[in-house]
Write a protein that binds this DNA or RNA. Sequence first.
DNA 1: CTCCAGGGAGCTA
DNA 2: TAGCTCCATGGA
Length: 313
Amino acid sequence: MRKPSFSDILSKYTPLQATEHFLWARKEDYTMNYTQKNGTLVLTDISSFSLDEILECGQSFRWTAIESSPYPLSYEGIAHGKKLQISQEGTTLYFHDTTKDDFEKVWKTYFDLERDYSAIKTLFRTDDTLSKAIAHAPGIRVLQQEPWEALCSFIFSQNNNIKRISGLVQRFCQQFGEEVRDGEYSFPTPERIASLTVEDLAPVRAGFRAKYIIHAAQCVASGKVSLSLPYTLPLPEAKEHLMQIKGVGPKVSDCVLLFGFHRLECFPTDVWIQRVMSTFYPKGLPTEILPYAGLAQQYLFHYARLNPELVKE
DNA sequence: CTCCAGGGAGCTA
DNA sequence: TAGCTCCATGGA
């Protein structure tokens, strides 16, 4: 029997019920076909996926575009201690010099390839504002980064801009990470950073954020803050748990939960999202959106940034 | 020169 | 609880 599409589900249930069906169903029959040519792993028919939107939207700060690539979109970066060059042409993805094992264990999850974003967008389009927002960046996905990296990245992010955050993270890795390959460094471990002083961190030029990074490392290294519990704790408790760290407030905590622990129900609220909410959702987001509020946040954030005249101050 | 950048700590009332 | 200032750095 054919599995019902999300639209079928939506026609029979309330949106919230449909979302729950969808959440339950997503692992059922979503298969991926890939081939390998000369060490390059090729993945076809990937929809709702745009490398530039995913890697430059301010959720990760370690990917750089390769301008000289023959592909329309090409990036290189390191995640989970592994270096990757990835390219995209239309709905085809190219993972260069990638083994099947690395793809299955790291990249398939990192790029959230098992989730059916098209189905989620069908649900989101029942809302008028989200429908417009999606049109501005339909290829956004939420990466599954490492919690510790996300924690540091978003401590660096406070009162800062994306370009400078990228610079801070890059210098942080060069100074204190392990060299994976010539000129490429892994993300520094909490243990390494925990033993440093703010003077040691001076080359990173993180300013007042240096002391927060060290405190975060000490909390993690000592076990005071767990990087496992937030995967499963109820959201408010997970948020409070991370906010034990100096420099981690409500916004940073939400970002770490969303981008590091892949808690997709988490909804980081900054000034832009505040404007979106007061303009379009004075009574809050529609209930059926809430299980994926974090993804909705990504669409809405970029919608507001690209169209500042549409939202109230 | 001033202003601001995907905030948060520390203080005040 | 809400409101305020300061916090390093660097680009516009």
